[in-house]
Design a protein around this nucleic acid. Structure first.
Lengths: 350, 350
DNA sequence: TCACAATACCAAAGCGCTTTGGACGACGGG
DNA sequence: CCCGTCGTCCAAAGCGCTTTGGTATTGTGA
């Protein structure tokens, strides 16, 4: 059923039917009701493409999600992020289109999206410190909001970020307060901005407590479980092992935990862990006493908010770039405890 | 840059330019090259909507992904599945559009997609045993392929599934061979077809070995880590605890493992686990000696194959419904071992 | 040399919608 | 009584593309 047919069965012009459906005032209330009812009855939905073509608005948001060439991995946070964003889109009649691209040709993906005029706006995921996409999108004139920030980019742009720096600083200081002097950082890939900020927070925390950083206690990698396992294991087995870890995600923390337990140590007693927690739906760290002490910030809510910002930008409500910084919650769980005293610690390891 | 402008700058008609770009023969090779080059130079991409409107083909595949109303959870396998499917789509010039819907109104989502004629085909995720979407889509005439099967549906339709039944039967028999007589099944939600089949496999395995099933050893739930933890914990604490678990996913298995270790037991010695492993990119169970003994079947590959089937269906290559059954690989890891003898087991627990 | 077929191009219609620029009565004020 | 206004509707253009149904221009065989 299309407009023409619908108009014909109603004995009205397409114009009138279209106006009735779209809430324009030049239609009498009686005919509007008649139209609405007929539309409902025939399950009429305007053809998206025709509508988009006529209005010039695609009513579609693009998400281009990078899959790392290294591990062919797509970051599991996207599922939750998008589910949060999707609620907002749906409420405003927007569709989602996604392109999955090897991170190399991400720029190309945006170019194509813009050239095809397939979307009204996009969300930029996982920005690097000098994220080139920001300049590209500004140049293309395609509305966008960045999930995260790009420290080195000076152009004004809209973003929503988590206060990673503050969070990791707090976590570090918290661990030091518990007596931990050697804290291992199991960070994400450090060309990504969030990872840099986390490291900065970690370093600031150490500095605040008068501790020297140790390069042997800082690692970087793609945030898989194995990575957490290997990185933690390596540090534990090194000459001066840490007594605590800061893990960049729950999944990484699980790996670290595995490394700890495999060595007969007990998490929260022999070695503490604090994890950043994106509050993923299938991995809730929220029992009466959470498994991990964590810096929690819901990625789903971030999706929700980012989408809201983007739609505001598209509708022209927000002309000037907007920023939102979400603070993390620090959740106390079972993975942290006072640093073991040296001797006890040594006994554990032998 | 649109067709009109491009044609104008070239001093050609839109017809010719369009034909040159789309590989029609009524264009001289010299002009074709000229056109192609100009298009390249101006980064011209035909407007998706206009093209779709003119051709009647949306060049878009719909994925409607359900978010469970219960835990607001979106199944983490989608990320990998879609990344597999996306490669195929991209290679054939198709876009992806996704709708995220509370599982309640999934039917509505498909209806809308069809009425808007927004997609050329869809993939049906997570079918129930009597999946009503199959009848709906057949009625709507929208090409589709089911990822999974629907045991009770008699209509012919295309699907790709993993041999869950066989896998779980094998795993069960393997555990029995190791001396396990009480095996706990930590299954997914059993209105979903794959979960039913897994249970059937489990029961068949027990029967094959002459063992009676015990209702206390079978649980059902949404496949989160907490669920695995709680379900396993409950069984372990019951009067006649199992000596092995069959877990419906790696994430669930991690929960089970946590329950085991929290009780001072050792996985693979005191209690064994076999998990179904979707081979998720951020959770690879594939070190030299994998953490879990597992039934592995790559969900990314499933996405790849399902997408291929769907495109074949859309292009009309496959008129008759096609089926594909993927066998699981059984991977030996560290989570299984012989059943402990009664006494030793008791000593462990006290 | 002429007719006929390729060859290489073009004008215009059409996809399903929105939106501009009216038309046509009814109504009310001067 | 007439004119301007308002309310209600419609015809047609236009969004950017594809595709049908041409028209010139060239090459070919008789």
């Amino acid at each position: 059923m299309n407009l023409k047919e619908l108009a014909h069965t109603l004995g009205l012009s397409q114009t009138t039917v279209s106006r009735a459906l779209n809430g324009y005032p030049e239609v009498s209330e009686t005919t509007r009701r008649r139209v609405l009812q007929a539309a409902e009855q025939h399950n009429y939905r305007p053809n998206t493409r025709a509508k988009a073509l006529a209005t010039g608005r695609a009513m579609t948001i693009g998400h281009v999600i990078p899959v790392s060439t290294k591990h062919e991995m797509v970051n599991p946070v996207f599922a939750d992020f998008i589910s949060g964003a999707a609620e907002v889109y749906a409420a405003h009649g927007y569709d989602i289109t996604m392109s999955v691209v090897k991170d190399a040709d991400e720029a190309g993906a945006y170019r194509t999206l813009a050239a095809k005029s397939a979307v009204d706006g996009v969300i930029v995921h996982a920005p690097t410190t000098d994220e080139p996409r920001i300049a590209l999108l500004t140049e293309l004139g395609l509305p966008f909001v960045v999930h995260g920030r790009a420290s080195q980019v000076t152009l004004p742009y809209s973003w929503l970020d988590v206060n990673n720096r503050r969070g990791f600083q707090r976590a570090t200081e918290f661990l030091v307060d518990l007596g931990h002097h050697r804290i291992g950082l199991i960070n994400g890939l450090e060309h990504l901005d969030f990872a840099i900020r986390r490291r900065q927070g970690y370093l600031a925390g150490l500095a605040q407590c008068g501790l020297q950083p140790d390069a042997a206690l800082m690692t970087t990698g793609e945030m898989t479980e194995s990575y957490g396992y290997l990185a933690a294991g390596r540090m534990i087995d090194a000459p001066h092992p840490p007594t605590a870890f800061l893990a960049s995600s729950i999944i990484v923390a699980l790996g670290a935990r595995r490394a700890i337990e495999e060595r007969g140590l007990v998490m929260g007693r022999d070695i503490s862990i604090i994890a950043h927690d994106d509050d993923l739906s299938y991995f809730r760290n929220d029992e009466t006493e959470p498994m991990f002490t964590a810096l929690r910030s819901s990625v789903k809510e971030a999706g929700h908010r980012t989408a809201t910002m983007l739609l505001a930008k598209i509708s022209g409500t927000d002309q000037t770039p907007q920023q939102q910084l979400m603070e993390v919650e620090m959740i106390l769980g079972r993975s942290t405890g006072p640093a073991p005293i040296g001797l006890a610690r040594e006994r554990q390891r032998s």
